[in-house]
Design a protein around this nucleic acid. Sequence first.
DNA 1: CCTGGAGTTGTCCTA
DNA 2: TTAGGACAACTCCAG
Length: 448
Amino acid sequence: MLSGFSYLTMMEQKKSFVVFWFRRDLRLEDNSGLAEALASGLPVLPVFIFDRSILDFLKKPDDRRVEFIHNALNEMHRELAAFKSGIRFFYGQPEEVFSELAADPGLKGVYTNHDYEPYATGRDKAVAEILGTKGIPFRTFKDQVIFEKEEILSGQGLPYTVFTPYSKRWKAMLRESDYKPKTFPAVVHWLSWKAEPIISLEEMGFRSTGSEFSPKEISTELLRHYGERRDFPSLPATSRLSVHLRFGTISIRRCVDMGLKNSEKWLDELIWREFYMQVLWNSPQVGEGKAFKAPYDRIPWRNNEDEFQRWCEGRTGYPIVDAGMRELNETGFMHNRVRMITASFLVKHLLIDWRWGEAYFAEKLLDFDLAANNGGWQWAAGSGCDAAPYFRVFNPVLQTQKFDKELRYIKKWVPEYNSLSYMQNQVVQHEFARERVLRVYKEALQGA
DNA sequence: CCTGGAGTTGTCCTA
DNA sequence: TTAGGACAACTCCAG
């Protein structure tokens, strides 16, 4: 669906312009590629493509992520109206879109930010080739991370596979680098054109869920207490910025600045994000269903469908596990501590393949990010890069005593936690499951 | 090449 | 009641 494009072609034929292509960087401020496009001196036409090959893959019409993206774009679209401009929206395949765009002799370049996932790199390569045949430069920039790809290497020149030395090196490099916000030139030229309203969710087969999105402000007060409060799921003590970092509605440079000033612990979380991104970049097989540590692919998973269903729906009979799954199902978010508990439970207590859990989280999480989700699941399963040792089995009861002693979180999501029928219906007994997983892992990994 | 310290988030048993 | 070690070695990484 490329309608409306011919108007632009006719109007702009005489005039040179460049395109800025938004993807995971849905903001106008401190946006590397956008700042570069504006610095080109030519009028900038902002473009967004609702990518059919991604949208057609999504299962449900009420997808919170599509709605989030839609909202973020609409906001920028309205801001750009003040400049008599707006985002040019497309609904289709990126290759098709750029074949059409490249037909305009006025197009002098396409600017965008680096996107590191396997699908994205393939897509960008194809787009670069299409543009290349017309002699149109495709210029891409680092924006969503401080350090990317192979910028952080060990003394042996290899990518790190252990977090702590990686983070030390990351912090040392930060001290010598310029991570300041990318500012616009004094005079900016947006392409002036008669922009149309954003394509509706309904036109693309989606509908609004009415979800409320977390604010993208960071409270310095929250960050100052982050280290000591972040593990308690009943407290509003985490930043809730994961979704904004996922879609680029907030700048990583601004976050790092806040972390440096207010919370080393939170800064570490931002470094974890980059750590897992570089793991995926340097070991792309982890994104294709492979265990980072190959011997872990020998584990004979039980993969009981009924038990998996109970885990998905929050009916395991373990209140802290069920609370987490219900929070996820109802809101598209789950507190970090509870992500670990639910993941450990699926993999260790139920002996279900971590890929099943990874796929379920991928479908449900508003802040879903391939690198972080895969890294987290492989960490929980023990199969990952810098994984938890396999004999570390979370005890749901002890975790509750430590992190939800007053049962506030549990009562919110599992009000029937105290009923006899609920308590008598545990999917598996902890002691039994613990001994079973230790035995199965040990046997599978023997001689590895 | 060698050396040695260290490794996100835990649990359980023993003394 | 509480502190310490086992759990499993292994590999990473800096010096």
